[in-house]
Structures are given as C-alpha cells and as structure tokens.
C-alpha cells in the first residue's frame, strides 16, 4: 500500500496554481470542457453513476435481506446457492447462505463511503494544516512540516494495523485510521501552493485593504487551491478503497453483519477452488469496475485541470 507520496502531483499542482492565480475563474469553464471531451473519463463517470444508482435502488429489487440466512440453501451452497432468478439470489449466496446480491450492494456502499469519507478527511485535515503552515510561516511552518516529515517516515501499513488493533474496530475508527495516514501528502502539497500564493499581488492587496489574516487564508487562498486539492483527492479515493480491502483481508475491518467489497473478495478468494466462484466474481467485478473508473476520472480531472496539456 502506497499512500501516494507523489511528487508528480506536487509538480502539477504548482503549474496549476500558477495558472489559476493569473487567469481567475474562466479556467473552470475550460477545465469542464476539456473533461467532457475526455471519452474515457466520461464513460467512467457514467458507469460509476450507474453503480451509484444501483446501490441506491438495487435494494428495492432484493428478495432477501443482506443478513438473512436462506436455511434451505445453507448446507449445500455449492449445489444450490448459485446465482438464479428463480431463487431470488441473483448473485448466488455466500458461504452461510446469505444473499450475495444484497450483500454486494451493502458492501459497495461501504467501500464507496470509505473511499469518499477517507479522502474527504484527508482533504479537510490536509488542507487546513497545509494552509496554516504555509501562511503563518516561520518557525510554526518549520515545526509543523517537521512533524509531517516524521510521520511520513513511519511505514503507513503498520500504523494502520497498530491503530486498528489498539482502538478496536468500528466504522468511525476505520475512517479515522484511513484519514490519519493519508492527509500528510495533501498537507505538503497545499503548503507548497500556499507559499507561492501568499506573496501574490492580490493577497498583498487584500492585506493592504485591512482584511483579517483568517479571512485571507480561507476566503482568498483556499479557493485558489481547490483545483489541485480536487485532483489529488480523486486519486486518493481508489487508494482508500484498496487500503480498506487490505485491512479487511487482515481481519481488522468492520464487524458482521456489515461487510465491504474487500472482505467479500477475501472470503470468495479463499473458497474459489470449492465450486462457488460467484462468491469471488460478483464482488470482484464491482470492485475492479469502481477502481478502474476512479482511475480514469482522476486522470481526466488531472488532464482537465492541468493547463500544461492544452
């Protein structure tokens, strides 16, 4: 698991900030046009929306609850638990005779939430930390960045394990753990951009006009950082999902009856030789689809917001 210590992102960010600062708002329309023209990204967006819609309305068609055991199928999952319209188990059943259709929907929801919330936590914490460090500067900046450097030196996989072993597991803890390891790079990028922005004319002007430091930070600098932050966050989402699946694989994920795609895949991978391949196939399909579409969307956003490629 590598939590994106990407210098490329920083480099892109630098170019991007330069452009925004000069060009103002018209860039947004350009970016949107460029994104719409990117076919792979648009297709991915469409597919991802379909998945989101499926997660929302899918339960309406479910015959079985996600935790309900089909007692008749239970003893002979390989023989009777295959996907079938007649039995109401559209995706088959899991090892205990629970409906995989409902479980995949619930798992997809969890994984999407983990991706989005994990990335947003990184976004909020990283942005605030980065702006404060960059804007205040001086000794505060030096010591704040020192802390980030130290934390970056700690192997993050191990921190995840340690955190989850120690604090017990719950949804909240999962988000905290994932957020905790992913805000560092965000903070670094944001601080770098803040440093270049804070000496620009429009900030000087605001300061001369008597605007308070707080307002400058969050009203004038923050909007100019938004582009780079969005690009980086979109790349973080699939990484969060991957990280969660690794945690689930170690048995440190969320508790039953809740489940996540990583966990369903881990279970399905264990039993793949026992004639119940659907237990691996369906969750894996959704998982891979989400990751791939997120990659394309992230790439699309980067291309759209990166003025260098025009």
């Amino acid at each position: 698991m590598n939590f994106a210590k990407s210098d490329k992102a920083a480099q892109i960010a630098a170019d991007f900030t330069d452009a925004t600062a000069v060009q103002g708002r018209s860039l947004w329309r350009d970016a949107r046009d460029r994104f719409v023209k990117n076919r792979a990204a648009m297709w991915s967006l469409a597919i991802l929306s379909l998945i989101a819609v499926f997660v929302i309305i899918g339960p309406l068609f479910a015959v079985w609850d996600n935790e309900e055991i089909d007692w008749d199928v239970m003893g002979d999952v390989a023989g009777m638990g295959f996907p079938s319209l007649a039995s109401g188990h559209f995706f088959g059943v899991d090892d205990l005779g629970r409906d995989l259709y409902s479980r995949v929907i619930q798992a997809t929801r969890t994984s999407l939430l983990v991706g989005l919330i994990g990335a947003s936590m990184a976004l909020v914490v990283g942005t605030v930390y980065g702006i404060v460090a960059g804007f205040v500067g001086g000794r505060t900046d030096a010591s704040m960045m020192r802390i980030v450097d130290i934390l970056l030196a700690i192997p993050m996989t191990l921190v995840l394990i340690l955190l989850l072993v120690i604090a017990g597991r719950s949804f909240t803890m999962l988000f905290v753990a994932l957020g905790a390891v992913s805000w560092l790079t965000m903070a670094r990028i944001v601080r770098g951009q803040t440093l270049t922005l804070k000496n620009r004319e429009f900030i000087e002007a605001a300061r001369a006009g008597g605007v308070s430091e707080m307002t400058i930070m969050f009203r004038h600098i923050m909007p100019n950082l938004l582009g780079v932050v969005i690009v980086y966050a979109s790349l973080l989402v699939p990484e969060m999902i991957l990280a969660e699946s690794f945690i689930s694989f170690l048995g440190l994920g969320i508790s039953e009856p809740h489940t996540s795609l990583g966990r369903l895949i881990a279970e399905g991978a264990g039993t793949m030789a026992y004639g119940t391949i659907w237990q691996l196939a369906f969750p894996l399909f959704f998982y891979v689809t989400i990751i791939i579409t997120m990659f394309f969307i992230g790439d699309g956003l980067r291309d759209a917001l990166d003025p260098k490629d025009r």
Partner: peptide
C-alpha cells in the same frame, strides 16, 4: 459463521 447463524 456460528455467531451469524445463532443471531439469525
């Protein structure tokens, strides 16, 4: 598995 079955 046992716990899930019992709870159900």
């Amino acid at each position: 598995k046992v716990a899930v079955a019992m709870s159900q």
